[in-house]
Design a protein around this nucleic acid. Structure first.
Lengths: 225, 225
DNA sequence: GTTGATAGTGAACATGTGTGCACTATTAGA
DNA sequence: TCTAATAGTGCACACATGTTCACTATCAAC
């Protein structure tokens, strides 16, 4: 109701192609956003109700079914969107490489700032990675494995990491991903205005990554296993 | 009903003190166990209903209130029980120290086997650490911080870790705890009968810990910060 | 034995839930 | 301009939920 009025007020008739589709995508996004907003704070995805999401999106419950077959499908869409966000970041990082000085510390900084900027998406990933319905959870695990493999590939060329074979490189990348997710969880739980606390977490994560890379420089994979 | 009959059958009259209290503790435990059982698999704690828990415990919903004011209080009790389990393990490890050969690998093995043996408790911790109600979540975080500090204290005497000041030691302990929780999550999600998969995860975690300790041996904390 | 305390029962309530169905209004295409 | 398609509405249903209340049956203490 409110959504229709404002929509028709904001977009008089200047729509070259698909006024209808655009409208549909708008409420689809409203539903996804509503879920993310409700997920912020206490709630977990599996405790959200379809009606609740519809209400926050400003839509009647039955309208939900025009977009998703149920909450599970909406959850899968959130997984897609969230990892799209993450992959965008990775792509950006590759296309505009950081200077090698303090590479680790700078990468951590970049990542955590990105996580703060896309708070809701990262919160969703962090929560549902471990507690969601199995379809959502497995989808997230799969994406995280993929991310780990990408990271391993990016890491491979570094001269200090010549001691690694492929398996062990992924092992190390997994450790890095774990540490970053842990720091992300701390960030998401911290008071958003407590700059000192945020800085403390950033430094903690930076040191942890430095420690990992310090160990990595010494690592020797067993040649034949 | 069924619970009462079996109870009176199993304990004829040989109860020195508190037949009544013992009965009460029994159904209290039944409620806690019911929640853990329901939590196994798909569900998250915040999606459990009081009625559901009561039904699995074999008790009418109203009886729930004789033991807990609501699901949140039951959750807090689960936190206590779960960490009691964990502290028991730590105490056992300290009182019967492992031989120094392969110390890291053996410790990982011990921990993960313990996690498998107390599957439901560790699953609860892993899930609600990130997605639970804020009281439960904060309680778990507090316990994990405590655990991290204990671990740091246990680690301090090692000669190879002389390069650490107190803060950095906790930083490293946090990394260890993170890695172990990550491995625990993998274990809990794996098929319980897939021995090869479990062994793979054990080896992964062992390598990750070795990598951390390799880095730690090289670490030099800044003397004054 | 009698009596007070209480763990567990069963029914009731108001409210929230997922989902189906006939509907209305708007748009895309003929 | 007329018509088919469809995003969103409003209502209905059967059911699950948290919580309350009077109750019953059992145990502890006198």
């Amino acid at each position: 109701m409110r959504l229709k009025r404002t929509a028709s007020a904001e977009t008089p008739e200047s729509a070259p192609a698909g006024v209808r589709d655009e409208r549909k995508q708008r409420t689809r996004k409203a539903l996804l956003d509503a879920a993310l907003i409700l997920l912020d704070g206490e709630r977990s995805f599996s405790s959200l109700s379809l009606r609740e999401v519809a209400k926050v999106a400003g839509v009647v419950p039955a309208a939900f079914y025009r977009h998703f077959t149920g909450m599970d499908e909406l959850g899968m869409s959130l997984v897609d969107d969230s990892f799209h966000t993450l992959h965008q970041m990775m792509r950006g990082a590759r296309s505009a490489p950081l200077p090698p000085a303090n590479l680790v510390a700078r990468s951590v900084e970049t990542f955590l700032l990105y996580a703060q900027a896309h708070r809701l998406h990262f919160q969703f990933i962090a929560k549902e990675r471990v507690s969601g319905s199995s379809s959502v959870r497995l989808a997230i695990r799969k994406e995280l494995r993929l991310w780990t493999s990408e990271l391993a590939t990016d890491l491979a060329p570094f001269p200090k990491l010549k001691g690694f074979n492929g398996d062990d490189l992924r092992m190390m990348a997994g450790l890095v991903v774990n540490a970053m997710m842990g720091a992300t969880e701390l960030i998401l739980d911290a008071d958003i205005n407590d700059a000192a606390e945020l800085a403390r977490i950033h430094q903690l994560a930076q040191k942890q990554l430095m420690l990992i890379f310090l160990g990595a420089a010494q690592w020797k994979s067993k040649p034949a296993q």
